[in-house]
Simulated assay, not measured.
Amino acid sequence: MAAEERLGLFPLRTVLFPAGHLPLRLFEARYLDLLRECLREDRPFGVVRITAGSEVGLEDGPPSIATVGTTARVVDTTALPGGLLGVRVVGERRFRVLEHAVDARGVVRARVEFREDAPNSGDSTPDDSGLGGLRQARIDALVDALARLDPELVEGEREVPGMAWLCHRLAERLPVGLGARQSLLECDDPRAMLERVEAWLGGER
């Protein structure tokens, strides 16, 4: 059985991938309280994409959210003008929202189930990276594309942690919509992820 946990959520109009970085600008008391709670207890919060509604205020009720999100760990905070707090987070693990509700402070709290990437090497023995069995030329083409989009991220290294990591980094940098990125985040099959990103690189959106 997959591990379950309760998380405070940041519903946002963005998609955070595992190992992805996200800058936030916080000013609402409820989210500042949640941030302090996570820092005090050394635990992550969850980032989920808003599918309908607003990021701020609850006058029209809580926003509708995607069913799959990513835990986020704070790596840096900075005081900004106007009473804002700048926060930089890194994505860690994917999760599925099983149920959620708004607490008395206005924070969305959820019971979540963590998801792991399901390696699929196709016609070969699976490995943990999801790269086994794929033609090296296809992998090289994606690495080359990432190097063109973000040379500093690759910096001459041809080894990548896995297909999910590679596809997530490309999705962050390609001009595709949030719905497409969310669909990739929800995908468990590295081969399907590869085909989707190859289509984006070919001009499909």
Rank of each mutant, 00 (worst) to 15 (best):
F114I: 12
Q136A: 14
L134C: 05
D128C: 09
E155I: 00
I139G: 07
A101V: 07
V102P: 01
R148C: 12
A137I: 13
D127V: 09
A145G: 10
L153V: 11
P161C: 08
R115W: 06
D123L: 13
L134F: 04
A137T: 13
A147C: 07
R96N: 04
R105N: 04
P151F: 04
S129I: 06
R109K: 07
L153Q: 13
R158T: 12
R105A: 14
F114S: 07
S124W: 02
G133D: 11
V102N: 02
H100S: 15
E157L: 13
R105E: 14
V102I: 10
A145Y: 02
P151W: 04
G132F: 01
V143P: 04
G122K: 00
V143N: 06
H100Y: 10
D127P: 01
E155H: 12
Q136V: 14
S124D: 14
R148Q: 14
S124R: 01
V97M: 03
G132H: 03
V112A: 03
A141C: 04
R109S: 11
R111F: 07
R148I: 08
V97W: 00
G156P: 06
V112C: 05
R138V: 12
V97Y: 01
A147R: 03
A141Y: 03
P151D: 10
F114C: 08
A110S: 01
V143I: 14
L131W: 01
V112W: 01
D140S: 11
S124N: 02
A145H: 03
R96A: 14
L134G: 02
A141P: 02
R148A: 15
A104F: 07
T125K: 00
S129F: 02
I139F: 04
R115Y: 09
A118W: 05
A118S: 12
V107Y: 00
L146D: 12
G133L: 09
R105L: 11
D128I: 11
A110W: 00
D150Q: 08
P161D: 11
A118Q: 13
S121E: 13
S124K: 00
R158Q: 11
E113M: 11
D140E: 15
P161T: 06
E159S: 13
E155V: 00
G132W: 02
D144F: 07
